[in-house]
Amino acid sequence: MKACTNLGRSSLEKAIAVTPENEGDALIKNGGFYWISFGKCGNLVERRVGGAYGSMQKSDREQHDQFLRLFMEHEEMLRLFVRSLLFNMEESREVMQEVAIVLWRKFDGSLDNASFRRWAFGVARMEALAFRRDRARDRHLFGDDVAELLGRTIQDESSGLECERNALETCVRKLRPDQQDLLQSAYQPGVNLKGLAQKLGWTSMTLYKKLHRIRLQLMDCTQREMAAEEYS
């Protein structure tokens, strides 16, 4: 049985709030590259997948920290990008793992923020493409040009999209309690929506539509919140 170790918290790592959602994400510390995951007893464990232990040069460590900073800064938008090409959340997660590994393996410390972002979006696009070619061959795929346009739009709109995410929590609190509960159930990691619909005595379509309406409500709300921020 794997030993469970608690994750130490340096100032850099504090930035990551570990939830079941980001389990499996990349983390770099002590010069090693780790996946965050939950242990048998529900505690946090780290699994080293690359990089050297402790005996690293200072410059190497700096490079790791730099990678982590850059990766974290763009991670959410990269996720969104991959999702926009694959639709499927589980598949996107698999691809993001691969993206993180590729980025780490081929990271060039001389890249500035903008070049890293462009490069990372390129890698994400390639990985999503390769994934679809292998795993979702029968699905209609967005053309290269559309993938390119979506990538560019996300990069251009990233600050707005991030504001929207920040406003989301406020907006969820404004939903009716039953809507909040429904979200809570439907967005549990690993939930099967068809199964959930059955448990609730609804058809899948009813559940999908209810969730859709909530998303639309939240879209409107976040827009209002952002507008209010701008004028306040």
Partner: peptide, 10 residues
């Protein structure tokens, strides 16, 4: 999509 994926991360 942003709303959808941010919900999953809440």
């Amino acid at each position: 999509l942003n709303i959808e994926s941010a919900l999953a991360a809440l």
